[in-house]
Structures are given as C-alpha cells and as structure tokens.
Design a protein around this nucleic acid. Structure first.
Length: 814
RNA sequence: GCGAGAGUGGCGGAAUGGCAGACGCAGCGGCCUUAGGAGCCGCCGCCUUCGGGCGUGGGGGUUCGAAUCCCCCCUCUCGCACCA
C-alpha cells in the first residue's frame, strides 16, 4: 500500500521473458484430454488492431482456462498470408509482395507475444511459405483426379478500374470494395471446385453442429446452399425439348407463358428469325447493365418475345416463349414455365406484357389478375383437368408421378449454391499446378515437381494489365510438357486465398510434416477442432469451404471425421460511437495507443467485461481505466493477503470462495466472461473486507491464490504478479499459468440459512431468514405469522399458499 | 419483400418462470490528505400523502407468480434479395 503502485508496464516487462523461458503453452506439455482451441488466423495487413485484440482475447481465455484445468491444449497461430493487398503495397513501394507480407507477419507476431496470447509458437505457419503451398497444390491435384476441380467458361466479376477479377466478397453492392468502380461481368475460362456435388452433405451434416454453432450461422449456410425440391418438366419448343425446373408442378395448368434467360445460349438457339433483331437488341441492352442495375429488385420486368411457342406437357397448350433478364442463366436450366397467378415475378411480367393470368390453386384469396398479388399458399386445385379438387401437396406428387410415367418429368432437387470459382488473375497466391500442352491438353504437374514456386516479380511487374502478372514471366511460363516433353505453358492463374485457409487447421497438427499435407496420426490426435473462434464475416465462405474440404478428405480416406469444427463462437466487433471504425472518417481507436496507456491486461479485461462475446463493443461505452482500477485492487489485495500470518479465520470467506469458483468455472466454460469477471470482482471486494477487518489466517492467502488463478486467463500479467506476491516464484517454474484451477468444496456450496421471500399476490412483502432444510409447513406458519403479510392481506382471507422451499412463499388472497 | 435476432436505469450490461437492475461506467456525498485525475466507505429507476404505488418498447393472454412463455403491433440490427 505504502510506496506501492500497480504498474502494468513494469509487470509486462518482468514476466514476458520469464514466460518465454518457461515455454508454458506447448501442445503436449500437459497430460489431460486433448483440446484444440483455434482462432481464425489473421491476414497480415499491418499491425494488430482492436478487432484482433477482442477475438484473440476470447480465444486466449478459452485456451488458458483448459490449460489450467490440465488439458493438453493445442493453441496454434499462423498467417493467411497470400492476397491482393500485398500486391498493391508492392506496386506502391516498388518491392516484392513477400517483403511487405513477412514484415507485417513479424510485426503481428511480436504484438501477439506482447498481448500474451498463449500460442504454441513452434507450430507457426504462413500460407505463402512454399512448404505450405506445396501441399495446397498437392490437394488441388487430388481434387483434379477426383473430378472435383474443372475448368469452364463463365461470366465473372471484373473491376474495370483495377483490371482484375474480384471475388464475390469483394463486390459490395455491385461495386469494387477498394476503388468503388461499378463491377462488370467478363467471360473467362476459370477453374472451379465442384462444391455443388457436396450440397446435400453440407446440409445434412449440419445436424452435427446444431447447438454448438451459432444458429444464425447454420441458417445462413442453409440459405446459401438453398435447397429446393420440385421437378424437372419437359416442354416441346418446335422440334426440340426444353426442360424447366419448378418447385410447383401442381401449377402446371396455370403456365401461360415460358421464359428463357436472355443471356443463356438457349435463348439464342430458340429465337425465331423474325424476332432475331429484337432479341439481339434486347440481349445487348441487358449485357450493358451494371450489376447494381441488374440487382435492383424493384426494376420493372423487361423481355422480348422469341416468336416461338412451347407446348405444355400436361394439356398440350401452346404458350409464347420470351427471353427476359429476370430468369437467371446459371440457376436450374435457365428456363422456366411462368405461372403468373402463383408467382409474383411471373405476375409482374404478365401484367407488363398483357399476358393471361389463370388461377389453378384456389387459396381463397382475391384474384391475382385483379390485385396484382400472386397467391402462393395452400389451396385446392382448379382449372387443372383431372387434378381438380386435390390439395397442393397431393397434386405435386400426383402430377410429378404422372409426368414421370410419360417420360416428361422427374422429381428433382435444385440448389442455389454455385460451384466455387477458384482462379484469380493475381500474382500473390498459390500457383495452380497444371500445364497446358497443345497436344496433351491440361496436364497436372507431377507430385514430385511440387511446389510450383512463384516466379520472382516485384514492383511495376505486378501492375494490373488485364491478365495474370504471372503470364509476363516468360521463363517461368514455358515448360516442357510432363507427358510428351513438347513445348507447353504453365497455368498463369493463382488460387483464391480461401483455398489456402480451407485446410490450415489440419496443417497445424503437424506443421513440418514432409510426406503429405498432414500427419494422419497427428490429425487423428487433435482433430476435429474443439472450439473455433472468429468473426461472423466468415459465416458462409471460409466455413463452408473448410467443411467442403473436410468432406472431400474424408472421402479420400485421409481423415476420419466429416466436420472440422465441433464448436464455433463468433465474437462481435469493436466499434466507436455506434459506427465501424474507419481511418478515413477519423473514427479510429489504435490498439497500440490503448495498450500504451492502460496496459495489456486492462485492454483484455475491458474487452471481456464489456458484454457477451458475440456482441459488438462500442469503445466509447467502456472504461479501460475502470479495468486498470480493478486490476490494481486485486494486485493490492494479493500483496496484503501474502503478508498475513497464522491467525483468525472467517468461515464466510471460505463459502464465498467456493461459490465464486463454482460460478466462474461454469461461466467461463459457457463463454459468459463478463459475468465471470463480475464474480471475480465481488470476491476481490470480499477478500479486501476480510483483510481490512484484521482476519489474517492462512485462508486469506488461499482465497487470494484462488482469485489469482481464476484471473489468470483474463489478465495474465497481473495474475502472475499476484501469484508472486502471494509467495510463489514463477522464475523458478512456479507460474500461475501452470497452476491448478481451484476446486470448489461441494460442502461449502450448501448454505445453512437462506433469505426466504414472502409474497402476497406475487408482490414481495417480507423476507425471513430460514434454515435451508425448512419444511413447507414451517414456512407456511412463518409466512402467515408475518405482520407485513397481515397488513398486505388487509383482512382478506387466504385462498392458497404457494410454497417453494426454502426460498419463496406466495400467499394468495381469496 | 423474405428470413433471423434484439428492445431492461444517464450508459455497458445482470437476472431465461420465483427479490428486476448483479458487476462496472458516469454522477452525488463522506473519510483520508498540503493536494487528489490516488485509495477507502456510502448513495444512486420513477412517483409518493412514507402506508405504499408504478416500472423491463406498446397492447393483450397464460400463470399463485412473467423481463423471461404465447398472440398482435412498433422500433432497431443482421442476413438474403428476381434462385422459379
């Protein structure tokens, strides 16, 4: 107290080197159950920021908690180190992307170390290391062998400003997220992974994740995969058959026209000569639309009559065929039957073009032709020949079965999920390990020749020219064909960085393994990940891709589980004054400045105490200085408790410790960190009071020790110093981070007396101290004897008395 | 538009069928002090005739008892957004 001040920076300098020496967090160091605590690895865009601090604080509490419980914890770190920002920085600075990348990695690693995250540093990996991407390429080749990697021509997002393709996630509201230019489409032949082949399993296996993953993430994945059941139905158009997909075969009799996606080859093929000019004019007009315009849902329906007619297989009716842009070329078959009465989009189109609207399912709602509102609910079939009178579901199965019998239709499932476009016209990524030979076509690079190393390019050589920068490395591109030895060219695209991150959690199990992407033994030992922590921004892409990879590896017999992440926690983000932080808007909190001002522990504690981990933290609403005050209070009380002699004892303190241990254990395990910290604060105050009252037995020291251990996951530096002040010698190997999590003595959790609340008509009127073992009869007696109860009753009779011993009595007046 | 989630003091949040507001921030008062941007202690939802009354976005319901469960409405946040 006298001449003593809590100095967080001095603690950091004192303990960090000690911990480095003790090497406390290596996997294999502890002997308990194996536990894999994984944080989503960072992109090395600069130094760590507030968002990293929050996410990694959460993961660190979980990892450290299980270590203190004696589990053998794997808590690795690495970097998602390929990506476009490195290229842009390299162009700006005239250097190699690797220079910028590795410099940032070093900076972040040093910051993580100072931030006291309990990583096993021996397992560090970077996805841009040849030793890593060699195996990314190896995995690609296995996918290729299984027919799960293929090339096709398609329209991809293109930024005319940056001269590069963009990933879907880089297109925000139809604009390039970096330069703001309107994104257009460009036809390119690209590599894809056949993730659609796994759509059903990606859905089904979510059953394993229910309860352990946030429900909304599962929901987003379900919606993203977008399973629809229905049927394929064949229509005759001239002398050819055109198949449509519909979820409503029961409405076939209501089909009054037919629509083909204007940008699908089918539209071009079906178009009658007389309509050719009109169609081509329309198609050109559609192709000029920006993504922003095309995505606008409120846009009026447009289209053009193709001058041909389709024959409805159920009734032989001839209906007009249109090309329109509201039908998507990439979904289903790119053609639909239009039932305006029961589909809003079709109705909008019908009204715009004056087409008939025929109700075939009577839902009891007003006529869509009049109201302009399509009816999609349950109902009875009408105007549908021999199906009239059937309910919707019955009609769907009967009509589908009948079509099937006639060879004109089949029950089917369709997915909204598209195959994963993995090619990128970028330099700083994993080269696609194939060779294009004029004679042999696409030839995989032999495994023995992996990795296909990136050629050395830097500065201006990386400038976007509309094709991959790799194409400019002429020496690198020309290779002999592995099959025929003739002249051939390397594939000049690199992979989407999501490929790199779809298997890194496996590599962590054996980061130096040379005979494959991972050691099957190590993976069997550690996988699946016990607890994954990361932002909800990866709810679909990264998590879906990783789940896909895991299933493919399972099918290859390389892993024995089908889901990689047993449990998932999404942390919120750190915001300021209600808005996301943004440098350009001057709305920033710098992590470095906060750490310099308050110290690591106070920043961690502030993040964890602010609220539930999945909620956003508004830095304007929280108080790091309050955290410093609390940490100083624990630190002082531990100092005082460490000086106590053998003397008086306070039984109430033992009970308070036991209750806190019990609560904090449960709360930490269920990620209720803010409440756990509140309990630690209460125990701190309790110990303070006991010490100030002059109680000085060994129990005070033991209470403070329990406090220090429970604080260790939350505020590791302060906890270590408290531990030392209580007489331990971390320098000699007795670190709080190697201590045992305290055990609550069950006998102390049972209270002897409790305060019983006495209500009259549900309102609290009295409180009485009773033994926990009190009987119902005794409670009724005590309650009815209460003066407060008598006054509240005001002469009314007692109808009944609800008794929940020992804590509550409710006297119900008659 | 569709889907999901959330609305509790001045603020962040506790309480998931049984004492609303734990814990903290801000504020107020006291002690200590030459001093306090330190520390410690106390107060801190609104109204009150001091008995009590009211109070968890609004309205209704279930229950002895509802922030908690059910229905309707309002507001906000997030996701998807022509997926046939």
């Amino acid at each position: 107290m006298i001449d003593e001040a809590y100095d967080p920076h001095a603690l950091q300098e004192r303990w960090l080197p000690v911990w480095d020496r003790l090497d406390l967090f290596q996997a294999g160091r502890r002997s308990g159950p194996r536990t894999y605590m994984l944080d989503m690895f960072p992109y090395p865009s600069g130094d760590l920021h507030m968002g990293h601090a929050e996410a990694f604080s959460i993961g660190d509490v979980v990892a450290r908690y299980w270590m203190l419980r004696g589990h053998d914890v794997l808590h690795p770190i690495g970097w998602d180190a390929f990506g476009l920002p490195a290229e842009n920085a390299a162009i700006r600075r005239g250097e190699h992307p690797a220079t910028w990348t590795y410099r940032n990695i070093d900076t972040q690693a040093a910051s993580f170390r100072r931030f006291a995250v309990s990583f096993d540093w021996s397992r560090r990996l970077n996805t841009c290391d040849p030793g890593y991407y060699r195996w990314t390429q190896w995995l690609f080749l296995r996918f290729l062998e299984r027919g799960l990697a293929y090339r096709k021509a398609s329209a991809v997002n293109w930024c005319p400003q940056d001269q590069t393709v963009l990933a879907n996630e880089q297109v925000v509201g139809g604009r390039c997220e970096r330069c703001g230019a309107e994104v257009t489409k460009r036809d390119l032949t690209q590599w894809y992974f056949k993730i659609t082949e796994y759509a059903e399993r990606l859905l089904d296996d979510m059953a394993q994740l229910v309860g352990a993953w946030p429900e909304r993430v599962l929901l987003m994945q379900r919606n993203w995969i977008g399973r629809s059941t229905g049927a394929y139905v064949d229509f005759r158009v001239g002398d050819r058959t055109v198949t449509v997909f519909t979820t409503r075969p029961d409405t076939l009799y209501g089909a009054t026209f037919f629509v083909v996606a204007a940008d699908a080859p089918l539209a071009d093929e079906l178009c009658a000569p007389a309509q050719r000019d009109a169609f081509e004019a329309y198609r050109d007009q559609v192709s000029k639309l920006s993504e922003i315009e095309r995505q606008s849902a409120e846009r009026p329906k447009t289209g053009v009559d193709l001058g041909v007619r389709a024959v409805n297989p159920v009734n032989g009716e001839e209906i007009p065929v249109f090309a329109a842009d509201y039908v998507l070329a990439e979904y289903g078959t790119g053609a639909i039957m239009s039932v305006p009465a029961h589909d809003q989009r079709d109705l909008d189109f019908a009204r715009a073009f004056g087409l008939p609207v025929r109700v075939v399912v009577d839902t009891g709602e007003p006529d869509p032709a009049r109201t302009g509102v399509a009816t999609a609910g349950e109902g009875i079939l009408v105007n549908s020949g021999r199906y009239d009178g059937l309910g919707k579901d019955e009609a769907i199965s009967r009509i589908t079965a009948d079509l099937n019998e006639r060879g004109l239709g089949v029950a089917a499932v369709n997915y909204r999920l598209r195959d994963w476009l993995l090619s990128r016209q970028r330099y700083w990524g994993c080269p696609i390990p194939v060779i294009h030979c004029e004679r042999d076509g696409i030839v995989p690079v032999p495994d023995a020749a992996l990795p296909v190393l990136l050629p050395d390019l830097s500065g201006d050589q990386l400038h976007p020219k509309g094709e991959s920068p790799l194409a400019a490395a002429a020496d690198w591109v020309s290779v002999p064909c592995p099959t025929c030895g003739g002249p051939a060219r390397r594939d000049t695209d690199t992979m989407d960085t999501f490929v790199d991150s779809s298997w890194y959690f496996l590599r962590y199990c054996s980061p130096d393994f040379e005979n494959g992407p991972f050691d099957p033994e190590a993976v069997r030992a550690w996988m699946p990940v016990t607890q994954y922590v990361g932002g909800v921004e990866h709810a679909i892409l990264h998590l879906l891709y990783s789940r896909f990879f895991t299933k493919v590896l399972y099918d290859m017999g390389l892993v024995d589980f089908t889901e990689p992440f047993s449990a998932l926690l999404n942390q919120g983000s750190v915001i300021l004054n209600g808005a996301a932080m943004s440098k350009s808007k001057g709305n920033m909190v710098e992590l470095g400045a906060e750490l310099a001002r308050y110290g690591v522990d106070a920043v961690r504690l502030t993040m964890l105490f602010a609220g539930p981990p999945e909620d956003d933290i508004d830095w304007a609403d929280v108080s790091p200085s309050g955290s410093v005050r609390y940490l100083a209070r624990v630190w002082r009380v531990c100092g005082d408790a460490g000086r106590q002699g053998p003397g008086t004892h306070d039984p109430a303190l033992d009970r308070a410790v036991a209750r806190t241990v019990d609560d904090v254990t449960r709360l930490t395990e269920s990620f209720r960190f803010n409440v756990a910290i509140a309990r630690l604060m209460e125990l701190t105050s309790a110990v303070r009071k006991v010490v100030d009252r002059g109680v000085d037995g060994p129990q005070v020291r033991s209470a403070a020790q329990a406090l220090a251990v429970m604080l260790a996951p939350y505020a590791p530096y302060t906890a270590e110093d408290c531990w030392a002040r209580l007489g331990h010698e971390p320098e000699a190997g007795d670190s709080v981070h190697d201590a045992q999590w305290p055990q609550a003595d069950p006998a102390l959790l049972i209270e002897e007396t409790v305060t019983c609340v006495v209500q009259v008509a549900g309102k609290v009127r009295d409180r009485i101290e009773v033994p926990v073992t009190v009987t119902e009869d005794r409670l009724r007696e005590l309650a009815l004897a209460s003066e407060n109860v008598a006054r509240a009753l005001g002469g009314r009779s007692v109808r009944t008395v609800v008794i929940r011993p020992p804590k509550l009595v409710n006297v119900v007046p008659g």
